[in-house]
């Protein structure tokens, strides 16, 4: 049973996926089959802002949500989380396994290791923990952004 009592947004740490430049990272809770998340992710990528990505993958929202989050973490074990992240958001019409393997080939992800890591329970726990943390912070949808510790559903106009 998860503890879903309130808990503030955890500060960005070494376990987080962070890229971009700037002072304080903008945290985004997102899910790879979510169209609004794709739009936000692309805007953030183009802005070059310092971004921290956290999973908000709900099985009740999309049957592929959790599997895609785990797949991105498996790619992340090969140092290719952000490449996989960009690839998924760039084309959300092809998210079944054969397409994931195609993406792996294109991105240089070792498929054998990818498949092994996808079945590693540690990654499933990692994704589930991220969702739990988001819910405890009060997230109710994706994308959700954290600005100065506060959750908001709109992408800040000028991410720092």
């Amino acid at each position: 049973m998860r503890d879903l009592t309130s808990l503030s947004v955890e500060p960005v740490g070494p376990e987080d996926h962070v890229r971009g430049a700037g002072g304080k990272p903008l945290i985004i809770y997102a899910e790879f089959s979510c169209p609004d998340c794709a739009v936000a992710a692309e805007r953030l990528r183009q802005s070059g802002a310092l971004v921290c990505f956290r999973h908000f993958a709900l099985a009740s929202r999309s049957p592929r949500a959790v599997q895609l989050a785990i797949a991105s973490e498996a790619a992340g074990r090969q140092g290719l989380f952000w490449d996989f992240h960009d690839s998924l958001f760039a084309d959300q019409s092809r998210l079944d396994d054969p397409y994931l393997w195609q993406r792996c080939e294109l991105l240089g992800v070792d498929i054998e290791r990818f498949e092994r890591d996808r079945r590693d329970e540690q990654l499933a726990h990692h994704v589930a923990d991220a969702v739990t943390a988001a819910m405890r912070a009060g997230a109710t949808g994706a994308p959700t952004f954290v600005v100065d510790g506060e959750l908001q559903s709109e992408l800040p106009a000028a991410p720092q």
Partner: peptide, 19 residues
Amino acid sequence: PVCTNQLQVYSEALPEITA
């Protein structure tokens, strides 16, 4: 859209809510 998000998240937490 907002109500959709709300019920999906609450559904996800039903085991804890109904425990």
